[in-house]
Design a protein around this nucleic acid. Structure first.
Length: 114
DNA sequence: ACCATGACGTTTC
DNA sequence: CGAAACGCCATGG
């Protein structure tokens, strides 16, 4: 659990997640792709799972799977509510499914364009 | 080193 | 649509 020396992978994920604009969402795969580990989207989700043990708070609610489903909402802290947090940011969610997903989808690759 | 576990993704049935 | 089988790879026991 405690990995003080090589948290490079996790930190990269956290950095990217923190860059997600409010009201927008991205996917585990997009982040994985951005980090060069396209086929390891699992690691991204895993990193986010550990995010709650991280020193800073990570807006992990803005990260969903490729289908736009809130597959990880169950893993959030009890006091938090992924759907609620997203709704507060203007993201419409219904039955774990983000509405207009492709429209509000944000990819870290857009950073390159900047 | 081996085995099990994942907030995933794609393919197949 | 749902379920299952793979592939993928970091971490822990």
């Amino acid at each position: 659990m405690y990995k003080k020396l090589s948290e490079s992978f996790f930190e990269k994920v956290y950095e990217v997640v923190k860059l997600i604009p409010s009201g927008r969402v991205t996917t585990y795969g997009a982040i994985a792709n951005y980090l060069g580990i396209t086929k390891s989207a699992r690691m991204v989700g895993w990193a986010l799972n550990q995010a709650k043990y991280y020193k800073e708070e990570i807006p992990a609610h803005r990260v969903v799977n490729k289908q736009g489903l809130l597959t990880g909402k169950h893993h959030f802290l009890p006091e938090k509510n992924m759907e609620q947090l997203l709704n507060q940011e203007g993201v419409q969610v219904k039955n774990n499914q983000i509405q207009h997903f492709e429209t509000i989808f944000w990819s870290p690759d857009e950073l390159e364009i900047t």
